[in-house]
Lab assay of single mutants.
Amino acid sequence: KELVLVLYDYQEKSPREVTVKKGDILTLLNSTNKDWWKVEVDDRQGFIPAAYLKKL
């Protein structure tokens, strides 16, 4: 499984997104879309802008 580091706080703006904090380490589920990556946060799955994440 691939992990990503959150570079900036992000507040979800729709039900398909998730809220994260800078410094969080998340499981990356899908990065095929270059703009929005799907991650897992506390048993929730959702999207975050790829620019907010860095692969570890």
Rank of each mutant, 00 (worst) to 15 (best):
L5I: 14
W37M: 02
L29I: 14
K34D: 10
D43A: 12
D35Q: 15
F47G: 02
L53Q: 01
E17R: 05
I25R: 05
L3W: 14
A50P: 07
T32K: 13
R44G: 06
N33A: 09
K13T: 12
P49L: 05
W36D: 02
P15L: 11
Y8S: 09
V41H: 12
Y10G: 00
L29G: 01
N33S: 09
D9N: 09
E40W: 09
V39L: 04
Q11A: 11
W36N: 03
Y10F: 06
P49E: 03
L28P: 00
L3H: 10
D43G: 15
K1Q: 13
V41N: 11
R44M: 07
K54L: 15
I48T: 08
G46R: 05
G23H: 06
D42R: 11
S14A: 09
D42P: 08
G46C: 08
F47A: 03
S31L: 04
L26N: 01
P15G: 09
L28S: 02
K34N: 12
G46A: 09
S14G: 13
V39W: 01
L28A: 03
V4F: 04
L28Q: 00
Q11G: 07
D43Y: 12
K1M: 12
G23V: 01
F47W: 15
D24S: 13
Y10H: 04
E12H: 08
L28R: 01
T32V: 11
K1F: 14
Y8R: 14
W37A: 03
L29N: 02
D43S: 13
T19C: 05
G46P: 03
V39Y: 01
P49Y: 03
L29E: 03
N33Y: 09
D42F: 15
S14H: 14
P15I: 10
Y8V: 09
L7A: 03
V41K: 15
Y52F: 15
K1T: 11
G23L: 02
L3C: 10
V4R: 01
W36P: 00
L28W: 01
L3Y: 15
P15Q: 10
L7F: 02
A50M: 06
Q11C: 12
V39S: 00
K1A: 13
S31K: 07
D35T: 15
N30R: 07
E40K: 11
K55M: 09
F47D: 04
Q11E: 14
S31A: 13
V20M: 02
Q45P: 06
L5N: 02
P15F: 08
R44Q: 07
L29Y: 04
L7V: 07
K13G: 08
E12N: 07
V18E: 02
D24E: 12
R44N: 06
L56M: 11
L3N: 06
E2Y: 10
V20Q: 01
R44V: 07
Y52K: 05
Q11K: 15
E17F: 05
L28F: 03
K54E: 08
V4L: 04
D9S: 10
W36R: 04
Y10S: 01
P15Y: 08
V6M: 02
V41W: 07
E2K: 09
N30L: 10
I25E: 03
K21H: 12
F47V: 07
L56E: 03
G23N: 07
N33V: 05
K13A: 12
K38Q: 14
W37P: 01
I25A: 02
I48C: 13
V39K: 00
L28D: 00
D9L: 02
K21V: 09
D42I: 11
I25N: 02
K34G: 11
A51S: 15
V41P: 01
L3V: 08
D43W: 09
D24L: 09
A50S: 12
K34A: 14
E17A: 06
I48D: 01
E40Y: 07
N30A: 10
A51M: 15
N30W: 08
Y52E: 01
K22V: 06
K21D: 03
L56I: 14
K22Y: 05
S31P: 05
L3E: 06
V20T: 04
I48H: 00
Q45S: 14
D24G: 06
V20N: 00
A51I: 13
Y52Q: 04
V6F: 01
Y8M: 13
Y8L: 10
D9K: 03
E2W: 12
R16N: 14
N30M: 10
D43M: 10
K22L: 05
V4A: 09
T32I: 10
T32D: 14
Q11H: 14
R16M: 13
S14R: 10
V18P: 02
Q45N: 09
Y8H: 14
L3K: 12
V4Y: 06
S31Y: 09
K13H: 09
L7H: 02
L28K: 01
D9M: 03
A50K: 08
Q45Y: 09
E12I: 10
T32L: 10
E17W: 04
